[in-house]
Nucleic acid binder design. Sequence first.
DNA 1: TGAATACAAATTGTATGCAAACTAACGTCG
DNA 2: CGACGTTAGTTTGCATACAATTTGTATTCA
Lengths: 235, 235
Amino acid sequence: MDTSKKQYCLSDLRQRILAMDIRPGADLDEARLSAQYGISRTPLREVLQRLTGEGCVTQTDNRGAKVASMDLGTMRTFFQTAPSIYANVARLAAENRTAEQLDALKEVQSGFARAVAASAAAEMALGNHRFHELIGEMAANAYLTPSLNRLLIDHTRLAQVFYRPAAPAESIAVRKASEQHDAMIVALEAQEGGLMVELTLEHWSLSRDRMERFVRPDPLPANVADLAEAKIRAL
Amino acid sequence: MDTSKKQYCLSDLRQRILAMDIRPGADLDEARLSAQYGISRTPLREVLQRLTGEGCVTQTDNRGAKVASMDLGTMRTFFQTAPSIYANVARLAAENRTAEQLDALKEVQSGFARAVAASAAAEMALGNHRFHELIGEMAANAYLTPSLNRLLIDHTRLAQVFYRPAAPAESIAVRKASEQHDAMIVALEAQEGGLMVELTLEHWSLSRDRMERFVRPDPLPANVADLAEAKIRAL
DNA sequence: TGAATACAAATTGTATGCAAACTAACGTCG
DNA sequence: CGACGTTAGTTTGCATACAATTTGTATTCA
Protein backbone atom coordinates (compact mmCIF):
# COMPACT_ATOMS: atom_id res chain seq x y z
CA MET A 1 0.00 0.00 0.00
CA ASP A 2 0.93 3.59 -0.42
CA THR A 3 0.90 4.51 3.24
CA SER A 4 2.82 2.50 5.81
CA LYS A 5 1.12 0.86 8.77
CA LYS A 6 2.51 3.54 11.06
CA GLN A 7 1.16 6.31 8.85
CA TYR A 8 -2.21 4.59 8.81
CA CYS A 9 -2.15 4.22 12.59
CA LEU A 10 -1.40 7.93 12.99
CA SER A 11 -4.15 9.16 10.71
CA ASP A 12 -6.65 6.56 11.91
CA LEU A 13 -6.13 7.42 15.57
CA ARG A 14 -6.37 11.10 14.74
CA GLN A 15 -9.61 10.56 12.83
CA ARG A 16 -11.12 8.44 15.56
CA ILE A 17 -10.26 11.07 18.14
CA LEU A 18 -11.71 13.87 16.01
CA ALA A 19 -14.84 11.79 15.33
CA MET A 20 -15.23 11.22 19.07
CA ASP A 21 -15.04 7.51 18.32
CA ILE A 22 -12.43 7.52 21.08
CA ARG A 23 -13.74 9.73 23.84
CA PRO A 24 -11.85 12.56 25.57
CA GLY A 25 -10.00 11.21 28.59
CA ALA A 26 -9.96 7.66 27.23
CA ASP A 27 -6.84 5.67 28.03
CA LEU A 28 -4.58 4.78 25.10
CA ASP A 29 -2.97 1.47 26.02
CA GLU A 30 0.29 0.87 24.17
CA ALA A 31 0.18 -2.93 24.08
CA ARG A 32 -3.42 -3.10 22.92
CA LEU A 33 -3.07 -0.44 20.22
CA SER A 34 0.23 -1.78 18.88
CA ALA A 35 -1.32 -5.23 18.53
CA GLN A 36 -4.42 -3.70 16.92
CA TYR A 37 -2.46 -1.83 14.26
CA GLY A 38 0.05 -4.61 13.73
CA ILE A 39 3.10 -2.55 14.68
CA SER A 40 5.43 -2.83 17.65
CA ARG A 41 5.32 -0.53 20.62
CA THR A 42 8.25 1.60 19.49
CA PRO A 43 6.58 3.17 16.42
CA LEU A 44 3.26 3.29 18.26
CA ARG A 45 4.84 5.39 20.98
CA GLU A 46 6.14 7.66 18.24
CA VAL A 47 2.61 8.04 16.92
CA LEU A 48 1.36 8.97 20.38
CA GLN A 49 4.18 11.51 20.72
CA ARG A 50 3.18 13.02 17.42
CA LEU A 51 -0.48 13.27 18.42
CA THR A 52 0.59 14.83 21.70
CA GLY A 53 2.44 17.48 19.76
CA GLU A 54 -0.67 18.17 17.72
CA GLY A 55 -2.77 18.47 20.87
CA CYS A 56 -5.06 15.45 20.39
CA VAL A 57 -3.42 13.49 23.18
CA THR A 58 -1.86 14.20 26.57
CA GLN A 59 0.93 12.13 28.08
CA THR A 60 2.09 11.87 31.69
CA ASP A 61 5.34 10.21 32.74
CA ASN A 62 5.03 6.55 33.64
CA ARG A 63 1.28 6.75 33.30
CA GLY A 64 0.66 6.54 29.59
CA ALA A 65 -1.34 8.53 27.10
CA LYS A 66 -4.94 9.73 27.18
CA VAL A 67 -7.12 11.46 24.63
CA ALA A 68 -7.05 15.18 25.40
CA SER A 69 -9.93 16.07 27.68
CA MET A 70 -12.54 18.74 27.00
CA ASP A 71 -13.55 20.22 30.33
CA LEU A 72 -15.65 23.30 30.95
CA GLY A 73 -12.59 25.52 31.33
CA THR A 74 -11.17 24.69 27.94
CA MET A 75 -14.60 25.15 26.33
CA ARG A 76 -14.77 28.63 27.81
CA THR A 77 -11.39 29.57 26.38
CA PHE A 78 -12.41 27.94 23.11
CA PHE A 79 -15.34 30.29 22.60
CA GLN A 80 -13.18 33.18 23.76
CA THR A 81 -10.31 32.53 21.39
CA ALA A 82 -11.73 30.97 18.23
CA PRO A 83 -13.24 34.02 16.46
CA SER A 84 -10.09 36.10 16.76
CA ILE A 85 -7.74 33.39 15.47
CA TYR A 86 -10.14 32.32 12.73
CA ALA A 87 -10.53 35.89 11.50
CA ASN A 88 -6.81 36.62 11.48
CA VAL A 89 -6.02 33.40 9.68
CA ALA A 90 -8.79 34.12 7.16
CA ARG A 91 -7.27 37.47 6.19
CA LEU A 92 -3.79 36.02 5.83
CA ALA A 93 -5.11 33.12 3.78
CA ALA A 94 -6.71 35.51 1.30
CA GLU A 95 -3.43 37.39 0.98
CA ASN A 96 -1.10 34.41 0.70
CA ARG A 97 -3.00 31.53 -0.89
CA THR A 98 -1.43 29.84 -3.89
CA ALA A 99 -3.30 28.51 -6.90
CA GLU A 100 -2.48 24.91 -5.97
CA GLN A 101 -3.85 25.36 -2.47
CA LEU A 102 -7.03 26.83 -3.91
CA ASP A 103 -7.46 23.81 -6.17
CA ALA A 104 -6.97 21.49 -3.20
CA LEU A 105 -9.56 23.47 -1.24
CA LYS A 106 -12.11 23.15 -4.03
CA GLU A 107 -11.50 19.42 -4.05
CA VAL A 108 -12.07 19.16 -0.31
CA GLN A 109 -15.19 21.31 -0.50
CA SER A 110 -16.74 19.14 -3.19
CA GLY A 111 -16.17 16.17 -0.89
CA PHE A 112 -17.79 18.07 1.96
CA ALA A 113 -20.80 18.93 -0.22
CA ARG A 114 -21.18 15.25 -1.13
CA ALA A 115 -21.12 14.30 2.57
CA VAL A 116 -23.78 16.95 3.26
CA ALA A 117 -25.97 15.58 0.46
CA ALA A 118 -25.58 12.10 1.89
CA SER A 119 -26.11 13.25 5.49
CA ALA A 120 -22.91 11.42 6.45
CA ALA A 121 -22.21 13.00 9.84
CA ALA A 122 -18.65 11.82 10.44
CA GLU A 123 -17.49 12.57 6.89
CA MET A 124 -19.07 16.01 7.09
CA ALA A 125 -17.22 16.84 10.27
CA LEU A 126 -13.92 15.51 8.92
CA GLY A 127 -14.35 17.29 5.58
CA ASN A 128 -15.13 20.52 7.37
CA HIS A 129 -12.03 19.98 9.48
CA ARG A 130 -9.82 19.50 6.46
CA PHE A 131 -11.36 22.56 4.77
CA HIS A 132 -10.39 24.86 7.62
CA GLU A 133 -7.04 23.16 8.10
CA LEU A 134 -6.24 24.01 4.48
CA ILE A 135 -7.19 27.64 5.02
CA GLY A 136 -4.70 27.54 7.89
CA GLU A 137 -2.02 26.31 5.51
CA MET A 138 -2.86 29.11 3.10
CA ALA A 139 -2.21 31.67 5.83
CA ALA A 140 1.42 30.50 5.77
CA ASN A 141 2.03 31.70 9.29
CA ALA A 142 3.97 29.17 11.33
CA TYR A 143 3.13 30.98 14.55
CA LEU A 144 -0.64 31.08 14.12
CA THR A 145 -1.09 27.62 12.63
CA PRO A 146 -0.54 25.63 15.84
CA SER A 147 -3.21 27.65 17.63
CA LEU A 148 -5.61 27.27 14.75
CA ASN A 149 -5.08 23.51 14.60
CA ARG A 150 -5.74 23.13 18.30
CA LEU A 151 -8.93 25.12 17.95
CA LEU A 152 -9.98 22.96 15.01
CA ILE A 153 -9.42 19.76 16.96
CA ASP A 154 -11.86 20.80 19.64
CA HIS A 155 -14.22 22.47 17.17
CA THR A 156 -14.53 19.22 15.24
CA ARG A 157 -15.02 17.20 18.41
CA LEU A 158 -17.68 19.61 19.66
CA ALA A 159 -19.37 19.48 16.26
CA GLN A 160 -19.58 15.71 16.56
CA VAL A 161 -21.44 16.02 19.83
CA PHE A 162 -23.73 18.73 18.61
CA TYR A 163 -24.48 17.70 15.03
CA ARG A 164 -25.16 14.01 15.58
CA PRO A 165 -28.87 14.42 16.44
CA ALA A 166 -29.70 15.61 12.95
CA ALA A 167 -32.93 17.52 13.44
CA PRO A 168 -34.41 19.03 10.23
CA ALA A 169 -33.44 22.55 11.33
CA GLU A 170 -29.84 21.37 11.68
CA SER A 171 -29.57 20.07 8.14
CA ILE A 172 -30.64 23.50 6.87
CA ALA A 173 -27.83 25.03 8.90
CA VAL A 174 -25.36 22.56 7.46
CA ARG A 175 -26.36 23.44 3.91
CA LYS A 176 -25.90 27.09 4.79
CA ALA A 177 -22.44 26.30 6.14
CA SER A 178 -21.60 24.60 2.85
CA GLU A 179 -22.74 27.69 0.93
CA GLN A 180 -20.52 29.82 3.14
CA HIS A 181 -17.60 27.57 2.22
CA ASP A 182 -18.35 28.24 -1.46
CA ALA A 183 -18.41 31.96 -0.80
CA MET A 184 -15.08 31.71 1.00
CA ILE A 185 -13.52 30.01 -1.99
CA VAL A 186 -14.64 32.95 -4.15
CA ALA A 187 -13.19 35.44 -1.67
CA LEU A 188 -9.91 33.54 -1.48
CA GLU A 189 -9.69 33.35 -5.25
CA ALA A 190 -10.19 37.14 -5.49
CA GLN A 191 -7.77 37.63 -2.56
CA GLU A 192 -10.33 39.82 -0.80
CA GLY A 193 -9.11 39.74 2.79
CA GLY A 194 -11.84 41.93 4.21
CA LEU A 195 -14.61 39.86 2.66
CA MET A 196 -12.94 36.67 3.82
CA VAL A 197 -12.90 37.93 7.42
CA GLU A 198 -16.58 38.84 7.17
CA LEU A 199 -17.53 35.44 5.80
CA THR A 200 -15.46 33.69 8.43
CA LEU A 201 -17.14 35.53 11.28
CA GLU A 202 -20.57 34.71 9.82
CA HIS A 203 -19.49 31.09 9.53
CA TRP A 204 -18.39 31.15 13.15
CA SER A 205 -21.68 32.70 14.26
CA LEU A 206 -23.65 29.95 12.57
CA SER A 207 -21.55 27.28 14.23
CA ARG A 208 -21.62 28.98 17.62
CA ASP A 209 -25.39 29.48 17.54
CA ARG A 210 -25.93 25.79 16.88
CA MET A 211 -23.66 24.87 19.77
CA GLU A 212 -25.47 27.29 22.05
CA ARG A 213 -28.83 25.92 20.99
CA PHE A 214 -27.59 22.47 21.94
CA VAL A 215 -26.20 23.52 25.30
CA ARG A 216 -29.25 25.63 26.18
CA PRO A 217 -32.30 24.04 24.49
CA ASP A 218 -35.83 25.41 24.82
CA PRO A 219 -36.89 24.77 28.40
CA LEU A 220 -39.71 22.42 29.24
CA PRO A 221 -42.99 24.08 30.28
CA ALA A 222 -42.68 25.40 33.81
CA ASN A 223 -46.10 24.18 34.88
CA VAL A 224 -45.99 20.41 35.23
CA ALA A 225 -49.79 20.10 35.43
CA ASP A 226 -50.20 21.86 32.07
CA LEU A 227 -47.59 19.55 30.58
CA ALA A 228 -49.47 16.44 31.74
CA GLU A 229 -52.75 17.89 30.47
CA ALA A 230 -51.20 18.65 27.08
CA LYS A 231 -49.95 15.08 26.85
CA ILE A 232 -53.39 13.65 27.57
CA ARG A 233 -54.98 15.92 25.03
CA ALA A 234 -52.50 14.81 22.43
CA LEU A 235 -53.67 11.19 22.67
CA MET B 1 20.76 14.05 40.50
CA ASP B 2 17.18 15.15 40.76
CA THR B 3 16.32 14.91 37.06
CA SER B 4 16.89 11.83 34.99
CA LYS B 5 19.40 11.76 32.15
CA LYS B 6 16.59 11.96 29.61
CA GLN B 7 15.08 14.98 31.32
CA TYR B 8 18.49 16.63 31.37
CA CYS B 9 19.01 15.83 27.69
CA LEU B 10 15.65 17.41 26.82
CA SER B 11 16.20 20.64 28.71
CA ASP B 12 19.85 20.89 27.73
CA LEU B 13 19.14 20.50 24.02
CA ARG B 14 16.30 23.01 24.30
CA GLN B 15 18.57 25.50 26.05
CA ARG B 16 21.34 25.04 23.54
CA ILE B 17 18.93 25.59 20.68
CA LEU B 18 17.46 28.71 22.30
CA ALA B 19 20.94 30.02 23.04
CA MET B 20 21.93 29.48 19.38
CA ASP B 21 24.68 27.21 20.69
CA ILE B 22 23.28 24.78 18.13
CA ARG B 23 22.52 26.76 15.01
CA PRO B 24 19.26 26.72 13.02
CA GLY B 25 19.41 24.03 10.36
CA ALA B 26 22.09 22.06 12.20
CA ASP B 27 21.81 18.31 11.91
CA LEU B 28 20.95 16.41 15.08
CA ASP B 29 22.63 13.03 14.75
CA GLU B 30 20.98 10.36 16.88
CA ALA B 31 24.03 8.16 17.48
CA ARG B 32 26.29 11.07 18.40
CA LEU B 33 23.80 12.73 20.75
CA SER B 34 22.74 9.52 22.49
CA ALA B 35 26.37 8.72 23.19
CA GLN B 36 26.96 12.29 24.35
CA TYR B 37 24.10 12.23 26.86
CA GLY B 38 24.71 8.64 27.95
CA ILE B 39 21.30 7.34 26.92
CA SER B 40 20.32 4.92 24.20
CA ARG B 41 18.79 5.98 20.91
CA THR B 42 15.22 5.12 21.90
CA PRO B 43 14.78 7.78 24.63
CA LEU B 44 16.86 10.23 22.59
CA ARG B 45 14.45 9.89 19.70
CA GLU B 46 11.65 10.56 22.14
CA VAL B 47 13.39 13.77 23.20
CA LEU B 48 13.71 14.86 19.57
CA GLN B 49 10.03 14.15 18.98
CA ARG B 50 9.17 16.20 22.03
CA LEU B 51 11.24 19.13 20.77
CA THR B 52 9.61 18.77 17.37
CA GLY B 53 6.24 19.15 19.06
CA GLU B 54 7.46 22.31 20.76
CA GLY B 55 8.71 23.71 17.47
CA CYS B 56 12.46 23.80 18.22
CA VAL B 57 13.20 20.96 15.84
CA THR B 58 11.94 19.68 12.51
CA GLN B 59 11.98 16.03 11.51
CA THR B 60 11.74 14.50 8.05
CA ASP B 61 11.11 10.81 7.44
CA ASN B 62 14.23 8.72 7.04
CA ARG B 63 16.35 11.82 7.11
CA GLY B 64 16.63 12.67 10.79
CA ALA B 65 16.15 15.80 12.82
CA LYS B 66 17.39 19.34 12.30
CA VAL B 67 17.18 22.47 14.43
CA ALA B 68 14.24 24.53 13.17
CA SER B 69 15.46 27.01 10.59
CA MET B 70 14.90 30.76 10.67
CA ASP B 71 14.55 31.97 7.12
CA LEU B 72 13.44 35.39 5.93
CA GLY B 73 9.84 34.31 5.44
CA THR B 74 9.41 33.15 9.01
CA MET B 75 11.03 36.33 10.31
CA ARG B 76 8.50 38.37 8.37
CA THR B 77 5.59 36.48 9.89
CA PHE B 78 7.28 36.73 13.27
CA PHE B 79 7.19 40.53 13.26
CA GLN B 80 3.68 40.41 11.86
CA THR B 81 2.26 38.08 14.49
CA ALA B 82 4.15 38.71 17.71
CA PRO B 83 2.56 41.96 18.95
CA SER B 84 -0.99 40.69 18.60
CA ILE B 85 -0.38 37.39 20.40
CA TYR B 86 1.76 39.00 23.08
CA ALA B 87 -0.91 41.64 23.78
CA ASN B 88 -3.77 39.16 23.94
CA VAL B 89 -1.83 36.84 26.23
CA ALA B 90 -0.88 39.79 28.42
CA ARG B 91 -4.49 40.76 29.05
CA LEU B 92 -5.53 37.19 29.82
CA ALA B 93 -2.57 36.76 32.15
CA ALA B 94 -3.63 39.79 34.17
CA GLU B 95 -7.13 38.40 34.46
CA ASN B 96 -6.25 34.81 35.31
CA ARG B 97 -2.89 34.78 37.13
CA THR B 98 -2.75 32.91 40.43
CA ALA B 99 -0.77 34.02 43.46
CA GLU B 100 1.62 31.06 43.10
CA GLN B 101 2.34 31.94 39.48
CA LEU B 102 3.06 35.53 40.49
CA ASP B 103 5.55 34.36 43.10
CA ALA B 104 7.25 32.16 40.52
CA LEU B 105 7.42 35.10 38.12
CA LYS B 106 9.05 37.31 40.75
CA GLU B 107 11.60 34.60 41.34
CA VAL B 108 12.41 34.38 37.61
CA GLN B 109 12.61 38.15 37.31
CA SER B 110 15.11 38.43 40.16
CA GLY B 111 17.23 35.86 38.32
CA PHE B 112 16.94 37.90 35.14
CA ALA B 113 17.95 41.07 36.98
CA ARG B 114 21.02 39.29 38.38
CA ALA B 115 21.98 38.17 34.86
CA VAL B 116 21.57 41.76 33.62
CA ALA B 117 23.79 43.06 36.42
CA ALA B 118 26.41 40.45 35.53
CA SER B 119 26.05 41.08 31.76
CA ALA B 120 25.58 37.33 31.29
CA ALA B 121 24.14 37.26 27.80
CA ALA B 122 22.93 33.65 27.60
CA GLU B 123 21.38 33.70 31.08
CA MET B 124 19.67 36.98 30.29
CA ALA B 125 18.07 35.58 27.16
CA LEU B 126 17.04 32.37 28.92
CA GLY B 127 15.67 34.24 31.93
CA ASN B 128 13.72 36.55 29.66
CA HIS B 129 12.39 33.49 27.85
CA ARG B 130 11.21 31.87 31.07
CA PHE B 131 9.63 35.16 32.19
CA HIS B 132 7.41 35.40 29.13
CA GLU B 133 6.73 31.67 29.13
CA LEU B 134 5.33 32.04 32.65
CA ILE B 135 3.09 34.91 31.54
CA GLY B 136 1.83 32.52 28.89
CA GLU B 137 0.99 29.96 31.58
CA MET B 138 -0.86 32.66 33.53
CA ALA B 139 -3.10 33.32 30.54
CA ALA B 140 -4.41 29.77 31.00
CA ASN B 141 -5.48 29.55 27.37
CA ALA B 142 -4.56 26.22 25.83
CA TYR B 143 -5.25 27.56 22.33
CA LEU B 144 -3.03 30.64 22.50
CA THR B 145 -0.13 29.11 24.42
CA PRO B 146 1.30 27.05 21.54
CA SER B 147 1.48 30.12 19.33
CA LEU B 148 3.09 32.15 22.08
CA ASN B 149 5.69 29.48 22.78
CA ARG B 150 6.65 29.24 19.13
CA LEU B 151 7.03 33.01 18.97
CA LEU B 152 9.15 32.93 22.11
CA ILE B 153 11.47 30.28 20.68
CA ASP B 154 12.33 32.49 17.71
CA HIS B 155 12.29 35.69 19.75
CA THR B 156 14.91 34.25 22.10
CA ARG B 157 17.02 32.98 19.21
CA LEU B 158 16.84 36.35 17.46
CA ALA B 159 17.73 38.07 20.72
CA GLN B 160 20.87 35.94 20.92
CA VAL B 161 21.98 37.16 17.52
CA PHE B 162 21.18 40.77 18.16
CA TYR B 163 22.21 41.24 21.78
CA ARG B 164 25.57 39.52 21.69
CA PRO B 165 27.56 42.56 20.51
CA ALA B 166 26.96 44.36 23.80
CA ALA B 167 27.42 48.00 22.85
CA PRO B 168 26.92 50.49 25.72
CA ALA B 169 23.62 51.67 24.24
CA GLU B 170 22.39 48.08 24.28
CA SER B 171 23.01 47.57 27.98
CA ILE B 172 20.88 50.63 28.71
CA ALA B 173 18.06 49.07 26.69
CA VAL B 174 18.41 45.81 28.61
CA ARG B 175 18.11 47.62 31.92
CA LYS B 176 15.00 49.33 30.59
CA ALA B 177 13.58 45.95 29.61
CA SER B 178 14.19 44.72 33.13
CA GLU B 179 12.33 47.73 34.53
CA GLN B 180 9.45 46.95 32.20
CA HIS B 181 9.36 43.44 33.63
CA ASP B 182 9.06 44.93 37.11
CA ALA B 183 6.20 47.14 35.95
CA MET B 184 4.47 44.12 34.43
CA ILE B 185 4.65 42.27 37.72
CA VAL B 186 2.89 45.21 39.39
CA ALA B 187 0.21 45.25 36.69
CA LEU B 188 -0.30 41.50 36.97
CA GLU B 189 -0.53 41.72 40.75
CA ALA B 190 -3.21 44.42 40.43
CA GLN B 191 -4.87 42.44 37.64
CA GLU B 192 -4.93 45.52 35.43
CA GLY B 193 -5.38 44.02 31.99
CA GLY B 194 -5.32 47.31 30.08
CA LEU B 195 -2.10 48.44 31.71
CA MET B 196 -0.55 45.04 31.11
CA VAL B 197 -1.32 45.29 27.39
CA GLU B 198 0.21 48.76 27.26
CA LEU B 199 3.38 47.66 29.01
CA THR B 200 3.65 44.61 26.80
CA LEU B 201 3.42 46.66 23.61
CA GLU B 202 6.08 49.05 24.92
CA HIS B 203 8.24 46.06 25.79
CA TRP B 204 7.74 44.74 22.26
CA SER B 205 8.63 48.12 20.73
CA LEU B 206 11.88 48.23 22.65
CA SER B 207 12.82 44.76 21.51
CA ARG B 208 11.74 45.38 17.92
CA ASP B 209 13.65 48.66 17.70
CA ARG B 210 16.84 46.95 18.81
CA MET B 211 16.38 44.25 16.22
CA GLU B 212 15.71 46.81 13.50
CA ARG B 213 18.78 48.80 14.50
CA PHE B 214 20.81 45.65 14.09
CA VAL B 215 19.35 44.76 10.71
CA ARG B 216 19.54 48.32 9.38
CA PRO B 217 22.50 50.09 11.04
CA ASP B 218 23.45 53.72 10.33
CA PRO B 219 24.76 53.81 6.76
CA LEU B 220 28.31 54.73 6.00
CA PRO B 221 28.88 58.23 4.52
CA ALA B 222 27.87 58.26 0.87
CA ASN B 223 30.84 60.31 -0.28
CA VAL B 224 33.93 58.18 -0.02
CA ALA B 225 36.28 61.15 -0.47
CA ASP B 226 34.74 62.93 2.51
CA LEU B 227 35.11 59.77 4.56
CA ALA B 228 38.82 59.54 3.80
CA GLU B 229 39.29 63.24 4.55
CA ALA B 230 37.47 62.88 7.87
CA LYS B 231 39.72 59.98 8.82
CA ILE B 232 42.87 61.98 8.06
CA ARG B 233 41.63 64.95 10.05
CA ALA B 234 40.89 62.69 13.00
CA LEU B 235 44.56 61.69 13.28
C1' DT C 1 -12.47 -3.00 61.45
C1' DG C 2 -8.94 -0.17 59.51
C1' DA C 3 -4.36 1.08 58.32
C1' DA C 4 -0.05 -0.25 56.76
C1' DT C 5 2.95 -3.15 54.37
C1' DA C 6 4.55 -6.62 51.37
C1' DC C 7 3.85 -8.99 47.35
C1' DA C 8 1.98 -9.83 42.52
C1' DA C 9 0.34 -8.20 38.11
C1' DA C 10 0.20 -4.95 34.64
C1' DT C 11 2.11 -1.10 32.23
C1' DT C 12 5.58 2.01 30.88
C1' DG C 13 10.60 3.03 29.90
C1' DT C 14 15.20 1.62 27.99
C1' DA C 15 18.74 -0.99 25.57
C1' DT C 16 20.25 -3.60 21.78
C1' DG C 17 20.32 -6.06 17.44
C1' DC C 18 18.78 -6.27 12.99
C1' DA C 19 16.23 -4.51 8.73
C1' DA C 20 15.38 -0.77 5.56
C1' DA C 21 16.43 3.57 3.52
C1' DC C 22 19.41 7.06 2.07
C1' DT C 23 24.25 8.91 0.53
C1' DA C 24 28.09 8.84 -1.99
C1' DA C 25 31.75 6.89 -4.58
C1' DC C 26 33.06 4.06 -8.28
C1' DG C 27 32.80 1.94 -12.65
C1' DT C 28 30.40 0.97 -16.95
C1' DC C 29 28.01 2.14 -21.05
C1' DG C 30 26.19 5.27 -24.51
C1' DC D 1 32.85 13.35 -21.52
C1' DG D 2 28.49 12.84 -19.31
C1' DA D 3 24.68 10.04 -17.64
C1' DC D 4 23.20 6.17 -15.48
C1' DG D 5 23.38 1.95 -12.60
C1' DT D 6 25.71 -0.58 -8.96
C1' DT D 7 27.59 -1.22 -4.61
C1' DA D 8 29.79 -0.09 -0.03
C1' DG D 9 28.95 2.74 4.13
C1' DT D 10 26.25 5.48 7.02
C1' DT D 11 21.95 6.69 9.23
C1' DT D 12 17.29 6.00 10.45
C1' DG D 13 13.33 2.73 11.58
C1' DC D 14 11.45 -1.30 13.91
C1' DA D 15 11.00 -5.41 16.88
C1' DT D 16 12.06 -7.74 20.90
C1' DA D 17 13.87 -8.57 25.47
C1' DC D 18 14.57 -6.74 29.78
C1' DA D 19 14.41 -3.14 33.62
C1' DA D 20 11.82 0.13 36.37
C1' DT D 21 7.72 2.07 37.91
C1' DT D 22 2.99 2.04 39.13
C1' DT D 23 -1.32 -0.26 40.54
C1' DG D 24 -4.09 -3.60 42.66
C1' DT D 25 -4.57 -7.18 46.18
C1' DA D 26 -3.91 -9.85 50.01
C1' DT D 27 -2.25 -10.30 54.58
C1' DT D 28 -0.82 -8.85 59.02
C1' DC D 29 -1.02 -6.26 63.13
C1' DA D 30 -2.88 -2.72 66.12
